[in-house]
Each structure stands twice: as C-alpha cells, then as structure tokens.
Amino acid sequence: MFEARLVQGNLLKKVLESLKDLLTEASWDCADTGIQLQAMDNSHVSLVSVQLRADGFDKFRCDRQLSMGMNLTSMSKILRCAANDDIITIKAQDQADNVTFVFESPNQEKVADYEMKLMNLDQEHLGIPETDYAAVIKLPAAEFQRIIKDLSQFGESVVISCTKEGVKFSAAGDIGVGNIKLAQTASVDKEEEAVTIEMQEPVTLTFACRYLNMFTKATCLAPQVTLSMSPEVPLVVEYKIGDMGHVRYYLAPKIED
C-alpha cells in the first residue's frame, strides 16, 4: 500500500507544471524515504531530478518500493482539477495498475477522486557524480526567468559567465547582442531578493535558451534559484519545493564542434 497526503497540495500542482513541458512520461519511484523522479527529455540534452521527502508529507506510507510510470500530461490534467488550497492524497495498491488522486477542500465539504492508469516504463537511471562546482550562484527565481526570456529574443544560446565581480548572461543573434550583468548584492532587506555568488574559479558556459526557458516553469515553486556551474560539465538549476525537497534540472553545455 502506498499513500501520501499533502495538505499543501499546490506544491504538487507546481511540481507538475515545472515538468510537463520537458517530459511526457516518467516514473515516480516511491520508497519509505519519499518519492523521487529522474528522467531525461526526449532529446537527452537535459535531465530532471525531483525529490519529495517522506517527512514533508502530512501522512506518508509506503509498505514496499514501487515505481509508478505515469503520463505526465495526464497527471497534469488531473492535478489541474485540484484547487490551490486542496489537500492532495496519492494512493496506490501494491502492484496496482492504477493510481488514485484524492482532492479534499480545506473544510472537507468537497472531495474528488481521480483514477489514472499507470504505465510500464523501462527508464534508464543515470548516476550523477558528486561535484564541487566552480561557481554557485543564487538569485531571485523571477529575475532568472526574466533574464532568460529577454535574452531568448536575441539567439538560441545564452552564455553564462561567472567571475568574482558577478555573473553575466549574454546572447547574440541577427538583431544584435544582449548582455545582462548581475553583481552580488551588498545588502538586502529580504533574503529572497539577494544575489549571492560562491566562486572557486571563473567559469563560462553556453546553454540552449529553449531548455533554460522550460526550466523556468519551476519559478512558481521557490523565491530563489541556484545555478551550479563547472567547466565542461552540465549546469544544475535547482528550485526548492518548500522544505520537502527540490526540482533539479541538469543541462548539457554547448560544446565546440
């Protein structure tokens, strides 16, 4: 028996919004420690990793490990039927071929349940090595979204360059060149408005705007986003899911042909 109840059901709605443009189907791996998802996009350029820890749920029971393969477009349609303040419960029997989503209004006066067929997905799991990144940049998630949206008008790629002075995002194309520089904030009233940079060595990498734009669908999840970069390795774009986990996107850099 698997059952996970989340009073703050809108977190799950937001997680799905942040995945559905990148992935069409994926497996949710459930264990007594929580729920995890790892999947590559269709072109194998990026990887998404989601963690939802058991202790972040209001009730969590997972008697035996199970992998629930789901069509994320369908899951997203179902979760859109939940109100933002609904309590969401996910339930499945052991070795079941379907999963049930239960949405309760906060006053318990409306209860809806939706059943969805599970899929058998033979998904490849990748080992992500522990990496000490050369630069770790934290900035407001909405700022990052805006920067990527703005620079996407100029070209297909964004160059992210981090030095001790700050971080620079650049794009070039037919209409011209765009550069956006962010300095580390000296002092801020609110922590979530800060730009902070932890840098071991300067690093410059080039990434496809298309993917960065898809990652910023997770902006609704968290006030801040963390970008971790090292030379010649994938960028990590991380959004926290409340205090229960994270969505991490890994994006392969553009390389010299």
Binding site: H44, E124, H125, I255, E256
Partner: peptide, 14 residues
Amino acid sequence: SRGQGVILQYFASH
C-alpha cells in the same frame, strides 16, 4: 560554431 552536448556524455547509465 557550437554543437549541443547530450547529458549521457556526462552521467553514466546504470
């Protein structure tokens, strides 16, 4: 020009 790398170049499948 720059080509797009794939994630499998960096992370081992298991």
